[in-house]
């Protein structure tokens, strides 16, 4: 998904370490964040968050590689990878989650496709079983009634 040395043409947006972006940042290309972002980050492609970056925003992307700190909810379309330096304080929703040893995730986590969940069987249609202990008289009465029915 992410290569160490990406060709210059592949990455559309880079937010450098000395830059602070404030507001709703919406783009359609790959995004690399190494600075600070406050607000919202939304992309339909890949997102890479550097180890020194701080994100105080809700994040939405197709794939994401997180090495820095995110304070906000993350919504990823397919694959979220948290490296050992990653710190996430917020809820995560993704298809696949990969967490390295040392990564911090504080929040609710929802993984996989909800449609994949097997359906619960309908127990209400099953006959109710009476579990009360029956007396000997009740048992003989029941057996007599059954014999009569058979003779008829």
């Amino acid at each position: 998904m992410f290569k160490e040395n990406q060709p210059a043409g592949e990455t559309e947006t880079v937010i450098g370490p000395s830059v602070k972006v404030e507001g709703d940042f919406v783009t359609e290309g790959n995004v690399v964040v190494q600075g600070t972002v406050c607000g919202t980050i939304k992309t339909s492609k890949d997102l890479k968050i550097g180890s020194k970056s701080k994100i105080f925003a809700d994040v939405s992307a197709e794939n994401a590689l997180v090495a820095g700190e995110i304070q906000g909810n993350i919504r990823i379309g397919s694959r979220l990878e948290l490296t050992s330096t990653a710190k996430v304080f917020g809820d995560v929703k993704t298809e696949t989650l990969i967490m390295a040893n040392g990564a911090i995730l504080n929040g609710k986590c929802q993984m996989g496709n909800v449609k994949e969940r097997s359906s619960r069987p309908d127990f209400t249609k099953q006959a109710k079983i009476d579990l009360k202990p029956q007396t000997t008289e009740e048992l003989t009465e029941n057996s007599n009634e059954e014999n009569k029915k058979k003779k008829k």
Binding site: T13, V14, G16, P17, V19, T27, V32
Partner: peptide, 22 residues
């Protein structure tokens, strides 16, 4: 394009990647 300041010392190179937005 936003690039960081150039170092005043010639042996210290600015290694920060430039910011590029559209």
């Amino acid at each position: 394009f936003l690039t960081g300041p150039k170092s005043t010392f010639f042996w210290k190179k600015n290694t920060d990647p430039p910011t590029h937005l559209k």
